[in-house]
Amino acid sequence: MTSAPAVLRPRLRRFLATCRDGWNTVGVQTEFYGRTLASTGTAIARYRAQILILIAQMGLGVGALAVVGGTVVILGFLTLTTGALVAVQGYNSFAQVGVEALTGFASAYFNVRLIAPLTAGVGLAATIGAGATAQLGAMRINEEIDALEVMGIRPIAYLASSRLIAGLVVVVPLYCVAVIMSFVAARAGTTLGYGQSTGVYDHYFQTFLNPSDLIWSFLLAVSMALVIMLVHCYYGFNATGGPAGVGEAVGRAVRASLVSSIAVVLCVSLAVYGQSGNFNLAG
Score class of each variant (00 low, 15 high):
M1G: 14
T2R: 15
A4W: 09
P5T: 02
R9S: 10
P10H: 14
R11G: 06
L12C: 07
L12V: 12
R13K: 13
F15P: 08
T18K: 11
T18L: 13
T18D: 08
W23Q: 10
N24G: 05
T25G: 15
T30G: 10
T36C: 06
S39L: 05
T42F: 05
T42L: 15
I51T: 03
L52R: 13
I55Q: 07
Q57W: 06
Q57E: 15
M58A: 11
M58S: 11
M58Q: 12
G59M: 10
G59Y: 12
V67R: 07
V68Q: 01
V72I: 14
L75C: 13
L78M: 13
T82H: 03
G83S: 02
A87K: 01
N92P: 00
A95S: 07
Q96L: 15
V97Y: 03
A101W: 09
Y109W: 06
N111D: 09
T119A: 15
G121D: 13
A126Q: 00
A126N: 05
G129W: 07
A130I: 04
G131I: 04
G137C: 04
I141P: 02
E144M: 09
E144I: 09
I145D: 08
I145Q: 04
E149H: 06
V150T: 07
M151G: 11
G152N: 06
I153D: 03
P155C: 00
P155E: 02
I156W: 01
Y158D: 07
I165N: 00
I165L: 09
V169Y: 06
V169I: 11
V170N: 08
A185C: 03
A188Y: 07
T190Q: 01
Y194E: 02
F205S: 01
Q206C: 15
L209I: 03
I215R: 11
V222E: 06
S223I: 04
M224Q: 10
V227W: 00
M229S: 08
H232C: 08
H232G: 07
Y234G: 01
Y235Q: 00
Y235W: 05
N238M: 02
G241I: 11
G242K: 01
P243D: 04
E248Q: 15
A249W: 01
G251W: 09
R252D: 02
L258A: 07
V265S: 12
Q275G: 06
